[in-house]
Amino acid sequence: MSSPPDAGIARAHLRVARPTDNLDVLLHFYEAGLGFSVLFRFADHAGFNGVMLGHPSADYHLEFTSNREHSVGRCPT
C-alpha cells in the first residue's frame, strides 16, 4: 500500500546555506535580533567555519559559512 502524495511533507527538512565574510556579526543579528538558536557550529572543516541556526523543533535551519581564503563581499550568491 502506498502513502498519499503529501505523506512525506511533515518529515521534510529545509536547509538554506549561504556564505558570509563575518560570522560574528551575522550570528548576533540572528540570535539577538531574530531569536534563532545555534544548532551546530564547526571550525576549519576543509578550510570552512560555519554555524547552523534555527529553532530546535522546526523543520528548517539556516547555515552560514566562511572561508578565510575567499571573500564573498556584498554580492548575492
Rank of each mutant, 00 (worst) to 15 (best):
I9F: 12
V16M: 12
D44I: 05
A32Q: 14
S3N: 07
H13V: 09
A58R: 12
V38K: 13
R41A: 10
Y60P: 03
L23W: 02
R74D: 14
V16K: 03
I9H: 13
N22T: 06
C75A: 13
L53N: 06
R15W: 02
F64I: 05
L27G: 05
D21T: 01
G35L: 04
S57W: 00
S57E: 11
R41T: 15
F29R: 15
P76G: 07
D44H: 08
D24N: 13
D59M: 08
L53K: 02
F36M: 10
L27D: 07
H55Y: 09
R74S: 14
R74T: 10
A12G: 11
M1C: 03
A58C: 06
R41F: 04
N49M: 03
G33I: 00
L53Y: 02
F48A: 13
N49D: 15
S2R: 08
P56Q: 06
S71N: 10
F40A: 11
F40D: 11
N22I: 01
P5C: 00
D44W: 02
V72H: 07
A17C: 13
M52N: 10
L62C: 03
D59Q: 13
G73V: 02
E31L: 14
R15L: 11
V38S: 10
S3H: 07
G47A: 10
A43V: 11
E31F: 02
R41M: 11
R74V: 05
G33F: 03
F64R: 02
D59W: 02
L14N: 08
A58L: 06
E69R: 13
F29I: 12
V38F: 03
H28Y: 07
N49S: 09
F42E: 13
S37E: 15
N22K: 07
L39A: 05
L34Q: 03
A10V: 12
L14K: 05
D59P: 10
S71Y: 02
F36H: 08
D21V: 02
S2L: 07
D59R: 12
H45G: 05
R15N: 11
R74H: 11
D44C: 07
F42M: 09
S37T: 14
A58I: 05
R11D: 14
E31P: 01
F48V: 12
A58G: 14
F36P: 00
L34S: 00
G33H: 04
H28S: 15
L39I: 03
F36D: 01
V51P: 06
D6T: 15
A10G: 07
H13C: 06
E69H: 12
F48T: 08
V38I: 15
G50C: 09
F36N: 01
G47W: 06
P76N: 09
L23T: 03
L23M: 04
P76V: 08
R41I: 01
A17E: 08
V38E: 13
G54W: 02
P4T: 09
V72F: 08
M52C: 14
H70M: 15
P76T: 04
G47S: 10
R15Y: 00
S37A: 14
S71G: 15
V25E: 13
A43Q: 14
G47Y: 08
V25H: 12
S3F: 11
F48G: 06
L14H: 13
S3I: 02
T77F: 13
